[in-house]
Every structure is written in C-alpha cells, then in structure tokens.
Amino acid sequence: MTDTTFRAYRVFEENGAFVRKLVNRSVNELPEGEVLIRVKYAGLNYKDALSASGNRGVTRNYPHTPGIDAAGIVEDSSSPLFNQGDEVAVTSYDLGMNTDGAFAEYIRVPADWIVPLPKGLTLAESMVLGTSGLTAALSVKRLLDAGQKHVDGPVVVTGAAGGVGSLAVKILLKEGFEVIAATSNLEDSREVIEKLGAHQHIDKSETDDQSGRPLIRPKWAGAVDVVGGNTLATLLKACKYGGNVTTCGNIGSGELNTTVYPFILNNISLLGVDSQKTPLEERKAVWEKLAGDWKPDGLDDLATFISLDELENYIQRLLNKKNRGQVVLKL
C-alpha cells in the first residue's frame, strides 16, 4: 500500500500567503496510525474553512490537508479493533487540525479515534451528521441531563439554517419540544426552516437584545446556541426561570458580556458543549442515538453532495457565511 497514490486538497504557505491546490500524494506520506482508511465521504465544517485559510488557532503547520470528519472503509489495520473492510467514521480529535484530514482519498489515524459505523446509518448519512450532528446531539443531551422538559416551553436554536443548528432542531423535535428557529436572514432561510419543521422562525435580531438591561421578558424555556457574543447573552437574559442554555460555537463572537442576574435571579444554567474531546464511550453512545431514536428524517434533503473539484467554491461560501444546510464531500 505504501506506493499507492491518491488525490488530496492541500493547503500550502507560499510567500506569506496560503494557497490551496488539488495534488497527488502517496500513502507513505500520511502520518503514523494503526488504521488506514479509504475515505468515501467527508463533512465540510467551519473549522475546515478556517484551517484552509491558514488560521493558526486551528492548524499550526503547513502544508496541510483539512477535513475533521471522515467516513470510509478500513483498508489496512494493525489494531485488533478493526479489520479490512470495516465501515467506520472519524470525527474531531486532531483529524484535519494538525493531522492530515479527510479532504483526501486516504487518511491514517489512531484506532482510538475511530467509531464503527452504527447500524441504521450509511456512510453518507454519517457525514451528513458528522461533527455537526454529534455536537447537536451532545447539546440536546446536555439539556435533557439538566432536566429540560418539553412541557417547560419552547427551546430556541440559533444559527438554525446551519449545520449544528439545523440538526439540533431535528433532534429536539424528535424529543417532542416546541422549537423556535433563529436565522440571520428570514427570506434566504425560509425554505430550509420549513423543511426542518420548526414551530416558529424568527430573525436573529430577536436574539440580539441591545437594550443594555440585565434581564428582559422571558421568551423561551431553553436554548441551543452556536453564535456566542451578545446572542448568547440575550438567550440567557430572556430565558424562563430554571431554564438551560447550551453553548457550542462562536461564529458571532467569542466574547460574552453579561451579568450574574440570569443565574442568581432566574436560576439559569449555562452548559458548555465540546465534541472534539468527548470520551469514546460517550461518543459511541451518542452515535447510537443518532442512528436510532434521534436519526433525523430526510437526512439526504439536508445535504448538498460535492466533489473534490467543487470543494474550493464551497469553502469560500462557508467563509462568507453563505452555506445553508450540510455540505458533504463525496470521494
């Protein structure tokens, strides 16, 4: 296998600028790891776009192949956990960050990064979900573990037309919640939100209070936030007594300026969600839920499937915040 060549989307640093190219590589150039996987599908995430742009907070060293989500077939394994021909998925850990990632026809990774493909999911469906689906599912799990109930009232989801948001909407609906979908452009995202089935569709301005007040009239009983910044502060101060707010993203801002009043007067809980370092056993359990009770209906309708040759265009769209729904690379 060491002389096998394959195509990869590679990012180079040249004269202070970052240049992206499709290149041919050899399997023997891949990093060390117990399992060699032939990639069949890969998810496209905002973190991938940052890596492709030379963001040192995501990827320290170049040249580099982005792609934090991969699904494929084991080609070779020195681990007793996996055999040639096994269908598997890899999401997060260091894949696509500082380890060559999924925007290539082959990856090689440690065995303990890999989840066997759960029954009930195809390889393609696992990448429609990907890190976004895992993060959405972990967010809903945090709400449920904190005692959030559908009888308490509606849950608002920010960035509801995007990857994590759209899947959080679908999972919350599976759990019987009334869901409010907040998006940045009502008209552009109307069709997407209608397909998701959310009960209400609101503009992001309703989750961006500018009054300066520490608390405002309650509008929801809980929230799943991917935006951060003032949006997260608004979700906290407009949350019903005893509610829970999860935070898993910062596409708006990494800053949080708020007061203690939502917490000490309204008993609000702020719950952090991380998918990158989620322990393997919890990760497997959540994937089983995504393949079973939480499997969103019409997964294929949530995704746009693209080729390696189209990847550059979709990375630009993602950087410009023009993507709607999931984008999946088919290799």
Rank of each mutant, 00 (worst) to 15 (best):
W287V: 06
Y93N: 11
D309L: 11
V192M: 15
K40E: 12
G96F: 09
R142V: 00
G252A: 10
R20H: 00
F82N: 01
K277F: 14
L308W: 04
N61K: 14
S139Q: 10
Y62D: 07
V328D: 07
T278H: 00
E206R: 12
R10S: 07
D188V: 02
T131W: 02
Y46P: 10
S211D: 02
G222N: 02
D297F: 10
I180N: 03
I202H: 10
K47W: 01
A52W: 08
G212D: 08
L256S: 05
H199M: 07
K141W: 10
K21T: 11
K195I: 12
H64G: 10
P116F: 01
S77F: 06
D100E: 14
N250F: 14
L215V: 08
K277L: 13
G163M: 01
S269C: 09
R7K: 15
T4N: 03
V156C: 04
N24W: 01
E34T: 01
G163A: 13
T59Y: 01
V109P: 08
E34Y: 01
F305V: 06
V327Y: 03
E191H: 10
G242S: 11
A223E: 07
I268G: 10
E282P: 00
V169A: 11
N313I: 09
Y241V: 14
I315P: 01
A8Q: 03
D208L: 15
P262H: 08
V226R: 02
N267L: 09
M97W: 00
E288V: 10
V169W: 08
H64E: 08
G16I: 03
S51D: 03
T158V: 02
T246Y: 09
A102E: 01
K240S: 13
S132N: 14
F6C: 09
A124M: 12
L270W: 09
R108H: 01
I216E: 12
P63W: 11
V109K: 01
C239N: 13
L129F: 03
F6Y: 15
G325F: 10
T91W: 14
D209V: 07
G229H: 07
D300R: 13
G212M: 07
I114V: 10
E87S: 14
T234F: 03
S79G: 03
W294A: 14
Y93V: 12
G147Q: 11
L95C: 04
R324F: 10
K321A: 14
P118C: 07
T278P: 00
F18A: 04
V23S: 02
D203C: 11
I37D: 08
A238C: 05
G292Q: 05
E32C: 05
G159I: 10
M1S: 09
E310Q: 15
G272V: 05
L44D: 02
G222V: 04
E14V: 07
Y241Q: 07
G242P: 08
L215H: 11
